[in-house]
Design a protein around this nucleic acid. Structure first.
Length: 897
DNA sequence: CGAGCAGCAA
DNA sequence: ACGTTGCTGCTCGC
């Protein structure tokens, strides 16, 4: 009997963890079933099966909410968020899979899964079985004994902590038997069981050590001094209640016996059908391999999968000389996978492990072990490869460059390829993608439990980078084939891949800031914020947190009894628009000061944020995200340099702090931006003769359009008319409604509607185009830019009106915003080539959607301005000219025109 | 730690 | 219900 091993699992808690640990976006079947919790649960189960190799296996689930604990304490687990709808369905799928695996699913009315597990574990231990419980509930620690080990999931779902009695003792300073007492004293927030205020694990363990056990502590409550002692005496009842409730029951009358839990009665056919239905290819193969390993192979293999699993090859760990020899033997024209543990932030990066793979050969090398000479040789050797494949190459390339590994030309970045296939996915995980597209199951990246990568060298880490380098090649092949089918390969090869190289250079360069100027701004904005805050307090006669919409609502709508504003989910809005309205209505000085405070604290925060990101080289190195915006735009983060204020005078002063780097020999900054590029694209795509004529006329666009809409000569268009037309023109690109226009212009809905009708009467082809682009997208399921960049919008056929209309506006905007993004990327590719051909020092630093910022070498303005004007103007052939404005000056602000 | 609100840019 | 695409910082409740 002693060779028997029992594995018990708390199904609900693990499925729940999996649900939140894995992004739902990456786990759904083609029919729309979300599978993240199922996948995570099964993945964990496989890991545990393979590590523990149990002879007996059972999974317990909670059954409803009504338990004996709730009966005794009605507030038990109160305040817990309702479990999401798409979770419940997944629990059923998990139970189906367990059924096919022949694993009993055990529940007991009125009791929780942990009581079931405790009972089974006690029976198992009594029968002499080696018993393990996988549970996310710490109360299970009380069961830890010589025969019973608790496997407690760390952050995430794949790592399990082995909580033996010694481990419990080490972590909490008490024996498993005393863990209940400790938990009772400390309390359990998740179960809504308050403990003794001010008493944490340390204090509780000390008391338990002193008085032996919880009854001992309670008996000596009078002897314990200090505030904590007093609190204990005030909360004796709570502690006693916790102690009663957190005891796990070990004597339930269960519908199954241990013998029913014997593992091995597998229904292979049902299992294959379920895995097929869930589209778990790689997981199916893992399971197949595992079952075969346990001597439980079936006669049928999962549908859609090959007879054998795709095996990740063994990675050989090489030294510098070995790596050079290996590289010399490879085909420089064939795909070579590259992976690493590189990381990069705030202008500097590091990389320890480099993995390379070609065919079935995977190798890894510790870069720190290479001599400078070897590193240079490796760089040269890699530079000869024309088909490097990486996943999320940009941060790695930046770290490589700083480590002396320069000059790599990446052929395919699988993250970019996956982005072009599905541009609105939330994340592009290499492991999920290889699973989904190739049936390959790669080891997830190692973490140290804090969610950061484990940087220490280990054979496992080497296997991980080698395996990733191998997997990414297969993934590239699969994704390129799919992109070729959808016409997106050109965008990848001609736009995104070369553009990535430009971003690497821009990000490594960064932009110089005048830290002194930032400091001055900080002081000024700080003083202004204080003044505005004090004046606001003065106006209402007391202090209030001006940053708290909730507190502001009390002041505005209760104390001052102002008219209610637009509803939000949690109350009434206090946004700037609404406050401005209230100011007009009431003239209350509090509002004026609140608005001023908001403005200036926002600016101050921007300055603080920028200051925090200045790197050692005195420059700010933003990161551009190339796979985030669903339309094809870039985004910028850490810090976001695409939303630096510009509309107000005070805001523009922040732009004065971005300067040319005189210390490094740069003379000035240059800015170049497209004028009304989205409107021009709309004119081109719609073919509207009147709008095309407007751009070709070369006069002020909005005055021209205004004259047509209002039927007056161009020079009689008043500023009010012009601004209305301007707002409408821009709004059209976003799918603005008459209602929205009326709100923005603070005019009546009827007037707004008349304005729009007038516009569409004069520019009929625009209306026709906008209608048509939505209808074509609905029929095709996607929109496309001028260059074939797609965005899929399945919600266009939703029967929920709000969802559908949101998709319609996205459909109308995506080709326009996306084409503009494509054109800017193409322009920058040409600018880069142009600057290189001219042999100038000037270099691009920033991109802000329709603007680029360039650092100018001495005396290079005229030449570079000419290059940029030419490249940007000729980036696309439209039926209207692409106008480019160029300016230069010491700072970003001075360079604006 | 995450949702909600607010506000900046194109 | 009513305007697209983003990022960051704050508050507040879990």
């Amino acid at each position: 009997m002693s060779s028997q091993k029992l594995l018990l699992i708390d199904g609900h808690s693990l499925a729940y963890r999996a649900y939140f640990a894995l992004p739902a976006e990456n786990f759904s079947t083609s029919t729309g079933q979300t599978t993240n919790a199922v996948y995570g649960f099964m993945s964990m189960l496989l890991t545990a099966l393979s590590a523990e190799r149990p002879t007996h296996l059972a999974v317990a689930f909670d059954l409803g909410r009504q338990t004996f604990r709730l009966a005794e304490y009605p507030e038990y687990k109160a305040g817990r968020a309702k479990t999401p709808d798409d979770f419940h369905g997944q629990v059923e799928l998990i139970k189906d899979l367990l059924g096919a695996l022949g694993v009993p699913v055990v529940t007991k009315e009125g009791f929780e899964a942990d009581d079931v597990l405790a009972t089974l574990a006690t029976q198992g231990a009594a029968a002499g079985m080696d018993t393990n419980i996988v549970s996310g509930d710490k109360d299970s620690f009380q069961l830890s004994s010589a025969d019973i080990t608790i496997l407690y999931p760390k952050r995430g779902i794949t790592d399990l902590n082995r909580m033996t009695p010694a481990a419990v003792e080490e972590k909490y300073g008490v024996s498993p038997a005393n863990y209940r007492g400790l938990a009772a004293l400390v309390g359990e927030k998740a179960d809504n069981l308050p403990g003794v205020p001010g008493v944490g694990e340390k204090t509780a363990a000390k008391w338990l050590g002193l008085y032996g056990d919880l009854p001992g502590v309670l008996a000596h409550a009078e002897d314990i001094g200090g505030k904590a002692g007093g609190n204990l005496r005030d909360h004796l009842a709570d502690v006693e209640r916790n102690y009663r409730l957190n005891r796990l029951l070990t004597d339930l009358d269960l519908p199954i016996a241990l013998a029913d839990a014997e593992f091995g009665r597998i229904d292979h056919e049902a299992l294959a059908a379920l895995l097929d239905q869930l589209e778990f290819q790689a997981l199916g193969k893992r399971l197949e391999v595992l079952l075969a390993d346990l001597g439980l192979e079936g006669t049928t293999s999962p549908a859609g999968a090959g007879a054998s699993a795709v095996e990740v090859p063994e990675t050989a760990v090489l030294d510098g000389a070995g790596l050079l020899a290996w590289l010399a033997d490879r085909d420089a024209e064939a795909p070579l996978g590259v992976a690493s543990d590189a990381r990069f932030e705030r202008g500097s990066g590091a990389v320890d492990l480099l993995g390379l793979a070609q065919g079935e050969d995977a190798v890894a090398v510790e870069l720190g072990e290479l001599s400078a000479g070897e590193l240079a040789e490796v760089a040269t050797a890699l530079g000869r490869f024309t088909a490097l494949v990486m996943h999320d190459a940009k941060p790695q390339l930046k770290a490589f460059a700083q480590a002396g590994l320069d000059g790599l030309r990446v052929w395919t970045d699988t993250e970019l390829a996956a982005y072009l296939l599905v541009p609105d996915a939330r994340a592009y995980d290499l492991e999920a993608l290889t699973d989904q597209h190739c049936g390959i199951s790669l080891a997830p990246p190692e973490t140290d439990g804090q969610g950061t990568l484990d940087l220490s060298f280990s054979n496992e880490a080497a296997q991980a980078v080698g395996g990733a380098a191998w997997g990414v090649v297969a993934l590239a092949e699969a994704l390129r084939a799919k992109l070729a089918d959808t016409g997106g390969l050109g965008v990848l090869d001609e736009i995104e891949m070369p553009f990535q190289a430009i971003l690497v250079r821009m990000e490594l360069a960064g932009i110089a800031v005048d830290s002194g100027a930032l400091g001055t701004l900080l002081e000024e904005f700080g003083a202004q914020a204080e003044a505005a805050r004090d004046a606001a307090y003065e106006a209402i006669g007391h202090e209030v947190n001006l940053g708290s919409p909730k507190q502001l609502q009390v002041v505005l709508f209760e104390e001052l009894d102002m008219p209610r504003t637009k509803r939000t989910k949690t109350g009434y809005t206090t946004d700037a628009d609404a406050l401005a309205d209230l100011l007009v209505k009431t003239g209350h000085p509090f509002l004026e000061n609140l608005l001023a405070y908001r403005d200036v604290t926002k600016l101050r925060q921007t300055v603080v944020g920028l200051g925090n990101t200045v790197a050692d080289d005195g420059r700010i190195h933003t990161s551009y995200l190339q796979t985030v915006a669903a339309t094809g735009r870039l985004s910028s983060k850490d810090p976001n340099l695409q939303n630096i204020p510009v509309r107000t005078e005070a805001g523009r002063r922040i732009r004065e702090a971005f300067v040319a780097d005189g210390d490094r020999g740069y003379a000035e900054l240059l800015t170049a931006d497209y004028s009304q590029i989205e409107m021009r694209i709309m004119a081109h795509l719609s073919g509207d003769e009147a709008l095309i004529a407007a751009f070709n006329a070369g006069e002020d666009l909005h005055s021209f359009v205004g004259s047509r809409v209002f039927g007056v000569p161009t020079d009689e268009v008043t500023p009010a008319m012009r601004s209305k037309v301007k707002a409408m023109s821009y709004g059209l690109v976003y799918g603005l409604s008459a209602f929205g226009l009326s709100k923005q212009l603070r005019i009546g809905v009827e007037e707004a509607r008349a304005l729009m009708d007038g516009y569409f009467e004069r520019f009929g082809a625009v209306k026709h185009y906008l209608d048509e682009v939505v209808e074509r997208a609905r029929a095709a399921g996607y929109t496309e830019t001028m260059y074939g960049r797609r965005r899929y919008l399945p919600q266009l056929t939703s029967d929920r009106r709000q969802v559908r209309e949101m998709a319609e506006r996205a459909a109308l905007n995506a080709p326009i915003q996306g084409s503009a993004a494509d054109i800017m990327k193409i322009a920058m590719l040409r600018v880069e080539d142009g600057l290189r051909a001219a042999g100038v020092r000037s270099r691009m630093l920033l991109q802000v959607h329709d603007e680029i910022v360039v650092e100018l070498g001495p005396g290079e303005y005229e030449e570079v301005a000419g290059i940029i004007r030419g490249c940007m103007g000729a980036a696309a052939e439209l039926s209207v000219p692409l106008d480019v404005n160029v300016g230069h000056g010491r700072s970003w602000q001075d360079a604006a025109h």
